[in-house]
């Protein structure tokens, strides 16, 4: 009997290869004309702990190792966080339309960032930018608000979902009003809203990495329970599951990783909604497969989109959110046509 609920070895190899390929492209390509071989040499020197070669350009080395490499890592972590959070939400809400922004985190982050941009306040803690802090607090605040409304409305997944929709609508209205009253800041706000990956070295990567690792491990540990939730709550409980614990842990983890990711990258749509579906359509509908592969696929997809966004009109950059939807939507539509009721 074929193995079930496990990632096929070939598929795992393929996705790992995709991550490596996206990494190599991200490091080798960019506005600065550095030969790909040279870029790879910097990387291999770094990984093998070799000393700096005096014959090579210090500027090029800095571009590759201090700019492109952290940007790849940040892109990978943001994409992986959004995709895993999206998969987690789709699991607990049993809703294929669920994405990481479902409970209002996008609207909250948007309002938080808008408020910081228009007021110009500076609460920087030294290692994190004030806009990022505003977006993070906004995202967490929005989900907490939705959870509070839902807790007095029966604490059911449906009530939480609807409370999230109401919260998001309200916060978006507030944000639109503030933008309309501060039209001089509109370009800056809009630039943040459509998402971008800008790094200042490794700070952002080191900020997101611990959240991603901890939340990913917890969500993956509950992937068996997410598979049980594909049945009714009663059946899941009778088979040894604990739906309430799963709801709470997955909501907290998915919200945290989404809040940190959007605070660093802005609102990058589509990845969190579609990547889990792509895994579901092409590999398996089990969450024990979807969660780990979403991390790999989400990470590499966002990195590839970022590389494309840097290259398309170099030295300027296209907004990454435009690229993710522009490339991802037709591909997803193509897969959807082949789905034959499996989604």
């Amino acid at each position: 009997m074929d193995k079930v609920f496990t990632v096929p070895k070939r598929t795992l190899l393929l996705y790992t290869f995709l991550v490596i390929l996206s990494g190599i492209l991200s490091i080798c390509l960019g506005a600065a004309k550095i030969p790909p071989i040279e870029s790879l040499k910097y990387l291999s020197d770094l990984m093998l702990g070799r000393g700096q070669d005096p014959n090579i350009s210090e500027i090029n080395r800095i571009i590759v190792l201090e700019w492109r490499l952290p940007r790849f890592c940040l892109g990978f972590l943001v994409g992986a966080s959004l995709a895993v959070a999206g998969a987690g939400f789709q699991g607990i809400f049993r809703n294929p339309l669920a994405d990481p922004f479902l409970l209002g985190s996008a609207a909250g982050a948007g309002l938080g960032a808008t408020l910081v941009i228009v007021t110009g306040i500076n609460l920087s803690l030294g290692f994190i930018d004030t806009v990022q802090l505003g977006a993070f607090l906004g995202a967490l605040g929005a989900v907490l608000c939705a959870a509070t409304i839902s807790s007095s409305a029966g604490k059911t997944p449906a009530s939480l979902l609807l409370a999230g929709v109401a919260t998001a609508a309200f916060l978006t209205a507030c944000q639109t009003y503030i933008m309309q009253r501060n039209f001089l800041s509109i370009q800056e706000i809009f630039g943040w809203l459509i998402g971008r990956l800008l790094t200042s070295g490794w700070t952002e990567v080191l900020t997101l990495a611990p959240y991603f690792v901890a939340c990913f491990i917890l969500i993956y540990a509950l992937s068996k329970e997410l598979d049980l939730l594909r049945l009714s709550d009663e059946e899941a409980r009778s088979l040894g599951g604990n739906p309430n614990r799963t709801y709470i842990v997955v909501i907290i983890c998915a919200t945290l990783m989404t809040a940190v990711a959007v605070s660093l990258s802005g609102l990058i749509a589509f990845v969190g909604l579609v990547i889990p579906h792509i895994i579901r359509l092409t590999v398996s509908s089990s969450y024990r497969v979807i969660i780990p592969l979403s991390a790999l696929a989400g990470g590499s997809f966002l990195t590839l989109a970022d590389t494309f966004s840097r290259m398309a009109i170099a030295p300027a950059e296209l907004p990454i959110g435009v690229i993710t939807a522009f490339l991802g939507a037709p591909f997803f539509a193509f897969l959807l046509r082949l789905s034959k009721g499996t989604i």
Partner: peptide, 26 residues
């Protein structure tokens, strides 16, 4: 024990062998 409610779920995208394997979860 095994409990099957009247309106049990028929999960989309799940194969029969996976469905039966869910019985081994615990």
């Amino acid at each position: 024990f095994s409990y099957t409610p009247q309106n049990f779920s028929i999960p989309i995208g799940m194969s029969l062998v996976e469905y039966v394997m869910l019985g081994r979860t615990s």
